[in-house]
Design a protein around this nucleic acid. Sequence first.
RNA 1: GCGGAAGUGGUGAAAUGGCAAACACACCAGCCUUAGGAGCUGGCGCCCAAAAGGCUUGCGGGUUCAAGUCCCGCCUUCCGCACCA
Length: 833
Amino acid sequence: MTEDKELRYDPATIEEKWQQRWAADPGLYAAEPATSSKPKYYVLEMLPYPSGQLHMGHVRNYSIGDALARHMWMRGYNVLHPMGWDAFGLPAENAALKNNTPPRQWTLANIAAMKRQMQRLGLGYDWATEVATCLPDYYRWNQWFFLRMVEKGLVYRKKSKVNWCPECATVLANEQVVNGCCWRHEDTLVEQRDLEQWFLRITAYAQELLDGLENLDGWPEKVRTMQRNWIGRSQGTEVDFGVEGGIEKIRVFTTRVDTIFGATSVQLAPEHPLVAAFAAADPRLKASVGELIEEQRKAREAGDLGVIEKHGVPTGRFALNPYNGERVPIWVANYILMDYGTGAIMSVPAHDERDFEFATKYGIEIRQVIKPVQEEDGAKLLPFCSEDGVLINSGEYNGLTCAQAQKLLQESAARQGFGEARVIFRLKDWGVSRQRYWGTPIPMIHCEKDGLVPVPDDQLPVLLPDTIQITQQGGSPLSRVPEFVHTTCPRCGAPARRETDTMDTFVDSSWYFYRYTDARNSSLPFDPATAQYWFPIDQYIGGVEHAILHLIYSRFWTRMMRDLGLVKNDEPARRLFTQGMVIKDGAKMSKSKGNVVSPDDMVARYGADATRMYALFAAPPDRDLDWQEDGVAGVSRFLGRVWRLAHAFEARAIEGRGGSVAAGNPAELKLLRKLHQTIAKITHDFEGRWHFNTCVAAIMELVNEIQNADPQLASGEVSAPVVRELLTTLVLLLAPFAPFLAAELWEQLGGHGSVLRAPWPQCDPALAREDEIEIPVQINGKLVTLVTVAAGSENKTMEAAALADEKVRARTAGKTVAKIIVVPGRAVNLVVK
RNA sequence: GCGGAAGUGGUGAAAUGGCAAACACACCAGCCUUAGGAGCUGGCGCCCAAAAGGCUUGCGGGUUCAAGUCCCGCCUUCCGCACCA
């Protein structure tokens, strides 16, 4: 192939040209209305936070989604492929402080910059449905949903613990607490404060969210497991212990009521209300409890520093076991959590590891009440925590199995009114209050006379005031905007105050994908019929870091909307794909490590096609991807080869237009066979395996093969129609991965219309089929030689060919062939003695 | 500690239980030259001077005619969860 200036692959020029063409044709990536006769396909990538810069993780995420969307378009689907911005959140306020730029302005500028980057990458989104969650058009529906949930009893207010930085005088999110200190004031310890917070009753759906996971077989097992653990269903019994010399009861939760005759103490969480009551009359107890609370607080802040040493104090009071009246001491312990179960347990050291540890430390009696079914000699007997045993030392329950005893003890408690069977969840209600400016105002009004009054629908949206000075002062910034705060009570008309907290930004992302289906609706969040057409999402793609929060909130929100009659589906997404991280030099890209690769840089050096294609080629999409710039250069060189190949034979390809494609000689057959094998491979991968790395490799193999046949293509041995078929099909196969180059070559080869609407090539199995195959011959499982037989040969033929081989004969001479295994079309193995 | 994923050349990786290392990157040798981040040809797991041959998918067992792939045990790395009663 001769080198020529005009023949040099110049991605910048090509990509610039097509970016402009696509921008001028907004219908290209637009979905058809629900009346379309085509089958629908909704492919969605998680919307980004508009930080102002795409990172490589985004590029990878969107390259996967875009390849899929383009493929589905070519397969004739009505594709919805939208994009938007998760545009509320604290960084905008921090930027405002730092640069004195209003959050709104900062955010919108970032959105514009990132949108440009996406367009530069050639991502095929329908920008007509673009959503930015910080705009009133969007967040008014957050408020609308909030009001609907108020009506349904799914919203309530309660005091709750929050992270509080005394220096900033504001609430911090958990992720803003670093080593127990404020992220902006490294020497300032974060306090736990009780604040009135708004909660959404996600726990009302706990069981349903758990059950729904069973049917989500299009989701990774990993994500389902994480959600199952997060929801944390636990089945057990609540039992009331009496307090000696008092009328109070201590309600404990236990999953092992069968061990209750082994309860030798009752343990209370340091923040249990009864502890405060006991401590009121006992200054020493009060001081000790203060320590326990402090230990728990530290452990909570330390996060993953591990389990703290168990520590407790006796209260000097006694509890009464309701089953037998036994008197056991009441302790307060730092390993009991107030916000799980009832904040109190019965401690059974013989059959619980933690209780065992505690009782050993403090010399509390350890009384065995379960005898293992199989006694193992030598094994340490206690604590014995399995349920595989029978009861002893348990009065009338002796001899029962654990399961039998649990049932009878529950029934007995219910009958006598001191307990009942209970299911509890680890999942807690969703605290959505944020004392921040840049979020959705919570649409409630505080009236002295009427209390909490919802803002009427016709007064929505409650607009976020634009003119606000962001400062480091404490409390909700909105509380310092008088014109926002002062209003009148919708009920009585008296002067009243608006709620000044804003909503957690996870509210925004819980339902944004519904808005895409009807993004400009001004009377409802979206049209239910349109949503019903598009939902559930056929393929959702994003990082596994959202496995819990975003994806569980979304599942909750969908069910909540279902109960409002807005949607019919229970689940938002049929299939979920979690792509791997992009790493460099073995570590996650981060500013502090200085190993960040900028997408702009890659695009400027190698072009968008090469950058995207490398992101798909370097690893299977679900695995972590190690970014190596040499690899991008390699993909760019490959695209250059495609470019030159197409140009070298452009004239012949055009000449071949309309001619009949047939394999008239061995050279043509060889090329067409490879072509159809490649079609089959890539088509198959799009149907589920998604190994786009091997798809790109297959295209490279095809190009290598065509290039090797360069002389035959040039000489005319390969006919013009076959040349055309090879090149145009190559372009079609490339289109989901390198859309710019594909569009350019499609045009140059005289393809009709947009390559995006060209039909995806069909594999002709007859052409793809090899007529001769090489099969391995093994002796006792070890490879000896390869023999060539006709494809589809009988076992007998394969066996004969193997036995006729010289090497085989040499090695079997004088020995007995005991057995011959023929794997049809695959292998022959001789068992020789 | 519990749960999950993974461990294959110098590197990224490939391989429906049937030829381990496809496709690339890097490297080496050569060619070409308009000297480019270009193109072309060839080589490239390990042992052996080479050939012949042998060895090789974290380690150890097993199943099988046949194991990177299935089973059991162990080691390492990464990711979740972690006093949840």
